[in-house]
Write a protein that binds this DNA or RNA. Structure first.
Lengths: 237, 237
DNA sequence: TTCCACCTCACTATTTTAGGGGAGTAAGAA
DNA sequence: TTCTTACTCCCCTAAAATAGTGAGGTGGAA
């Protein structure tokens, strides 16, 4: 088992195309004898990058139906640091259960294990194993492989970031210290007068910072600017 | 070596107090025969949580001098997914070199290795090993221990998040689907007219959603509401 | 030294948003 | 059934945001 992990990691490190990544997920699926192995980015616009063994039909359906918005796996992973076992999530809502049924109709198993991975500039990705199994067998499998899976998830994301060149200096705008402060205070709910008072500058000056930050962030309005600053990790509330 | 990693992980998992974490970092320092082992959060306000073997004097000085803002380690880690070897960073700026000298005067070694760790809601932490060594020895040490250190970093952060009870379910309010949509469109930079058009409702109705979402989120204004929705992970941009 | 980014302040103008009301319908839970 | 929650629509005024313009001082880098 251990030797095989190294094998997969090595073929992962040699990967140069998306097809190579795809091949790695397929090899992992066969190795772990699961139904599916998937790595993919997550954002609200839709999947921009991913490799895995899900059928194209299911991926299309997932995006088309906007399942991203109601998928408890996404929601759970987004709020946690640790991996999630699908069965332990909250499936009480009707749409969520309908989605799960839909997934099973598209060849997914009843058991899943998803590792959230976070990179710079708010990057968020998931590494998922899915299969048909009994609860106890699945838990035993997770216990046995959790650490290897974490390393795999990490290496997959590293490779994906290389491919996409996420968050290189060009794409993450540099805000000046005062701009950062301004955005931070706004994100904390202060109005301009309060933020200006906090920074001991005039409200006019504060506006200049907000405006310049907004332009640097390519934002359409102040709320958008704060949202982007938060999402890209430029500021932390 | 391998058995010892398990030992450290086990004592980490049994940790219930900050002092226990502190003990783990000290044990790790002794085990790896380095000068320092440190885990700490990073945010714009300053250090809120951390455990490590740095002298209190150095920690105080670091915060007092606002080194957080100019530290190439912080900056480098914030932009990367992979760990950084200090020597490979850009130390060309004068204040950065001054800080490094200051650090050495406070008992730090010339070599460092820092792993960035990201959690939900923009949480950002660092796990650092620091020591006095030759370049080649340090590289050999990193090569030999990189994977173990990654696992340690991960487990340390997991524990830290438990301590701080980051993002537990009770604190994350449930927004209705329409409220979620409204917040999402606002976070994308739409104004109310655009968002209302997107949701095919009147702008008046949209405002009701924004208001109710704002109240549920305990936000002072719309920007604050979007910021909180993003930070708590209820919406994804 | 010269340049550039940053910090600070000011003015004017229009458009948009905030925040406070109230009120009716439909669906689902107790 | 009743109660609650979600969804939809409408009114008002004061505050905030936006989009330009300008200009002077500082400090670091080439």
């Amino acid at each position: 088992m251990k030797a095989s992990l190294e094998q997969h990691l090595s073929s992962l490190q040699n990967a140069t195309t998306l097809e190579d990544l795809q091949g790695v997920t397929e090899a992992l699926r066969d190795h772990y004898k699961t139904s599916h192995v998937v790595y993919h980015w997550v954002n609200s616009i839709g999947e921009r990058f991913g490799a895995g063994t899900y059928s194209p039909e299911w991926v299309d359906r997932y995006l088309e139906k906007d399942y991203l918005r109601l998928d408890p796996v996404i929601f759970g992973c987004f709020q946690r640091f640790t991996p999630v076992i699908w069965k332990e999530l909250d499936w009480s809502s009707k749409p969520a259960r309908a989605m799960l049924q839909d997934a099973m109709d598209h060849g997914l198993g009843n058991q899943g294990y998803t590792i959230p991975i976070r990179g710079p500039a708010g990057q968020f990705a998931l590494f998922t194993l899915n299969t048909q199994a009994e609860d106890q067998d699945w838990h035993a499998f997770i216990d046995a492989n959790a650490r290897d899976l974490m390393i795999l998830a990490h290496e997959l994301n590293k490779k994906a970031l290389e491919f996409e060149q996420w968050g290189d200096a060009a794409t993450t705008p540099m805000l000046s210290p005062r701009e950062l402060s301004a955005m931070t205070y706004l994100a904390k709910g202060m109005n301009r007068a309060q933020a200006a008072a906090e920074m001991t500058i005039s409200e006019h000056t504060l506006r200049v910072y907000i405006e310049s930050a907004r332009h640097k962030l390519g934002a359409l309005n102040t709320t958008h600017a704060v949202a982007r600053a938060l999402a890209t990790g430029v500021i932390i509330v």
